[in-house]
Write a protein that binds this DNA or RNA. Structure first.
Lengths: 194, 194
DNA sequence: CCTACCGATCGGTAGG
DNA sequence: CCTACCGATCGGTAGG
């Protein structure tokens, strides 16, 4: 008779089903955008009607915010681990770019590229997304601060350019050609100046 | 009794009204995205009801395609003119970046940043947008081909990284800080290698 | 350019 | 998890 909290991390049968739904939703949001993905679309992929999803989630807004934050959590910890193993500032930047691209370009999984469509999301959702993203970008602010850049380069612009590349790589990435870590190497070789 | 073709370039009173509507639509699409902008939203800004817009346009899809193509036409000719005045390959690239950014970061006008939301547009529209964009990007392909780049840099990746930066600059650009041409200079100074 | 409306689709809910 | 439905909103149209 005990109802399990749909937002909890409990690992019974219902929770596995919930994770499956989250992964389906993440893929659809990544492919079609927030407004382009209806609850009925998600339900169809999960084999249920749209309304039935509300036993697992509170609302479409909350679902999207949860996915977005989970993706940034995963990226943050993966980057932290990759950077920890490096000492040279350029090597640290390269490791961070490779780790982020590996996530951004993964074709499936729950970690998906969705920090770009702030425009098509309701205002209340957008504020949460922006707050989380700003926190995420702090790690790049400190990585860039550690670089021995020529003085004529504006580090704020440099960081924004770098991040916009990493975030939009999925728009032109073609799985057949270079691997994510090769693209990261290209980016760093372009952004490397001293 | 003569009906004027709404897609023609005639310059009578009706055509001026039409251009005004196009500018309003361009601003809304740029700010809220394709799906986030309803015909009623556009009508409201223009001081009429949504249904009344259909005397000036055929459909929302056609309106968006027209705006997108007009923006790329304007960018293409502005870039061509800027590049023509330069001889050195790096100077040509710098001129092209400055011209494109000037358009991408202009707060109003009909030329607007909208080559990013291919995801939220209907399939039939997306195909037209992609075809036009691919043609637009050819000019950058040839500019990059003219650069004396180190051999370890992949020119295809280089071009995609450059374009993704130019296209998403409006996401972080803050009018108070650097001017568009200063940002273009920063980009070129980062992308300059020999 | 408005009134008045169409069918379709949306996010979400009640009750079982 | 389904049936059956809610009110809201969408793109678009007929007729004036």
């Amino acid at each position: 008779m005990k109802k399990h909290d749909p937002a909890s991390g409990s690992n019974d049968e219902g929770s596995g089903r919930r994770r499956q739904i989250l992964e389906i939703a993440a893929q659809l949001f990544a492919k079609k955008g927030y407004r382009g993905t209806s609850m009925r679309d998600i339900g169809e992929q999960a084999g249920v009607l749209g309304g039935s999803l509300y036993h697992h989630i509170k609302s479409k807004d909350a679902l999207f915010v949860e996915l977005h934050n989970a993706a940034l959590d995963a990226a943050e910890s993966s980057i932290a681990q990759a950077v920890r193993a490096q000492d040279d500032p350029w090597a640290r930047l390269a490791a961070a770019c490779a780790a982020l691209l590996e996530i951004q370009l993964a074709p499936d999984s729950l970690t998906m590229p969705m920090m770009n469509d702030f425009r098509e999301v309701p205002d209340a959702v957008r504020q949460q997304l922006i707050a989380r993203r700003d926190r995420f970008e702090e790690v790049f602010r400190s990585l860039v601060a550690g670089l021995p850049l020529p003085s004529h380069i504006d580090r704020s612009v440099y960081r924004n350019l770098l991040l916009s590349q990493l975030n939009s790589a999925s728009n032109w990435y073609c799985a057949g050609r270079l691997a994510p870590d090769e693209i990261a190497a290209q980016i760093v070789s372009i952004f490397r100046h001293e």
